[in-house]
Design a protein around this nucleic acid. Structure first.
Lengths: 358, 358
DNA sequence: TAGTCAAATGTAACCGCTTACATACGCACA
DNA sequence: TGTGCGTATGTAAGCGGTTACATTTGACTA
């Protein structure tokens, strides 16, 4: 009478109604052979009639292992991360795995509690598409013995696979491309961060620009993340005295914010200044002007993560390895031949180091 | 030796190490009183040393109830849905509930299997932020006896709470606003759908336009969803002979696609034609020109869903009710005073029913 | 007709936790 | 010293499945 779930039937109920034992029901439900067809039909009908749904907790508990993968994402709102998540999920579903995802919102506390949750759920594997990760958490993860694949966490760890994008290569391509268009004053807008993916872009920017020195100058502008951050950083940059021929943004969102500010100021892109993004999110194609950016193959990343999370018959599994994925340059409308800095001369005449033209 | 999870400790292990019974350990871990402080400390230390993490499956199974909510979302990539999800999640966390989310990708099959999963996990409640929902599934859900709150599913159901946005009101506001700016030829771009939220906007559009008849004409254009859908629909509309003074889109994404096409064609917004969106996603503020649209309070929606999903001491819980939420008009740059149709005359001279000016 | 063996099904232990109930403990009181 | 009682802890029965192992069934052989 006071059954906790008076409303949900269990194996016993099905077994009784079909006139068999729970073992047989279980066999039917798990598609094991060794069950007579007539029995199978009877059981299936009973389950159907009782609207039976197996209790997945009980199942996991009994099996002692699950086919559920955990995914940690810093920011699901970021279409870039989302695409990886989606690819990973499809790959998982295709192989009969379920997926639970936790959005950590860049919060360290949320991340910790999400990890606790995942461990508590005894997920079969964990994909970490997160940027914040301290050593204490790392310890917790390795202790848990759960297979883990990190996306883009800089420091390679023992026994943990790391899928990374070769951002250096991407950033190098952008700078070289802009250089070939005659750009000589490039600004890099990025959030102030020591995180691998970010600082790698920044460092490579500086290195590559340095290679073209002294004809080419580089400048770093710290910026908050997102559209608003880009807008704000553009404002700062333009009033800083550095007159860029090209503005390189650490990601597409920021670039769109920059475009917005430039438009507000009546500065034309790419005629007056070129702008580039990074990541190639969908928005990059639809903003105006469409953004020149670096495409990062999210689909492949997702699949690669899955492939390295789940043991496979004859897969490319490389445990404890670092796997590098190559990005590629996508040229659209927001970049063009450099026109020195004359477009900005109206705004910045005070700077005498440059000769206005036209 | 052949323990299934030789690597993960269980209550027994902790109990042994602390020299107590599993019951006591459980009491400590669940913060029950009736435990001597010295014992508590001993248990806690043992758990810590063993790096113990409770098995949540076992816990749910034993407790017979969970504090986990399931969220079904048609498309997490849609920032609009995402915002609702996020608000719902915060509300849940704030009250000690966990959340699992399933992205159904508008696929009916995915939805079914996600629902199965949720039922299997015995979630304490289910929030359905989905557009596809057939009667068979509905049956399955009501049979499961799980408390459910739907977002925006048109048909009110017995015993199921329905949180809805009053789209009529929003759409009416837009049309009236445009009418007050002198617009006389309005086109509505929306995907062809009988779904409540969509068809409601479409119908209200027609009704409201009809109120201003015969001075004002309305036109419906079917369109695929998303940016590309908007782009394509704009193309169709412009070559259809109907020369709109204003283009009303069923959502912001579509509107941004429209803006893109108009820009490509050299048609100015709002000088030549006004464009409106719906939803007020973040992008609406940052596209150019910034989009006039209807703001829908996602945060409140998320909170409301939670409030109606979880039994509360003295809450506003209204089971089986329909709760209406009011949207509001946000005027930005993409709308302006109507200038008849002269902007399009270059493209559409063939249509003799109109007198070109200027 | 009994014997053999594979196929079909049943029995019951176990997964790791919670919790009702039983028990042990200590202490005040008569 | 025995009694009673509140507090702290232990015992063991579930929760709803899975699965090793035991048992039954039945077709086929000798």
């Amino acid at each position: 009478m006071q059954a906790k779930n008076a409303d949900l039937r269990n194996l016993d109920a099905v077994a009784k109604r079909a006139g068999v034992s729970t073992a047989t029901v279980s066999r039917v439900l798990n598609n094991l052979n060794m069950v007579k067809n007539s029995t199978r039909a009877r059981v299936l009908r009973a389950a159907e009639e009782l609207k039976y749904h197996p209790n997945l907790h009980a199942r996991s508990l009994a099996r002692g292992k699950s086919r559920t993968l955990g995914i940690l994402v810093s920011n699901m709102e970021n279409p870039f991360f989302f695409d990886i998540y989606r690819a990973l999920e499809s790959a998982a579903h295709a192989r009969g795995y379920e997926v639970v995802v936790a959005n950590t919102d860049y919060s360290s506390e949320q991340l910790v509690s999400s990890v606790r949750l995942m461990i508590g759920w005894r997920v079969a594997g964990l994909a970490a598409i997160v940027s914040e990760m301290d050593s204490h958490l790392m310890q917790m993860l390795t202790d848990s013995k759960i297979p883990i694949v990190f996306y883009d966490v800089g420091t390679p760890q023992k026994n943990i696979t790391n899928v990374r994008v070769d951002y250096r290569k991407g950033m190098k391509k952008i700078v070289e491309y802009l250089h070939s268009l005659g750009h000589t004053r490039m600004a890099f807008l990025g959030h102030h961060s020591t995180l691998g993916p970010i600082s790698e872009r920044r460092k490579t920017f500086l290195e590559t620009v340095a290679r073209f020195s002294p004809n080419t100058e580089g400048q770093i502008v710290a910026a908050a993340d997102g559209l608003e951050g880009g807008r704000q950083a553009a404002r700062e940059l333009l009033s800083s005295g550095f007159q860029p021929t090209a503005i390189l943004c650490v990601n597409d969102f920021m670039a769109v914010g920059v475009l917005r500010h430039l438009r507000d100021q009546g500065i034309r892109v790419p005629e007056d200044v070129s702008v580039t993004g990074f990541d190639n999110i969908k928005l990059a194609e639809f903003c105006s002007p469409a953004l020149t950016t670096v495409h990062i193959p999210r689909e492949r990343i997702g699949q690669t993560i899955f492939g390295n999370l789940v043991p496979d018959q004859a897969s490319d599994r490389l445990s404890g390895q670092e796997i590098l994925i190559d990005p590629e340059l996508v040229v659209r409308e927001s970049t063009g031949v450099a026109r020195q800095t004359q477009a900005l001369e109206n705004r910045q005449l005070s700077n005498s180091g440059l000769q206005p033209r036209c």
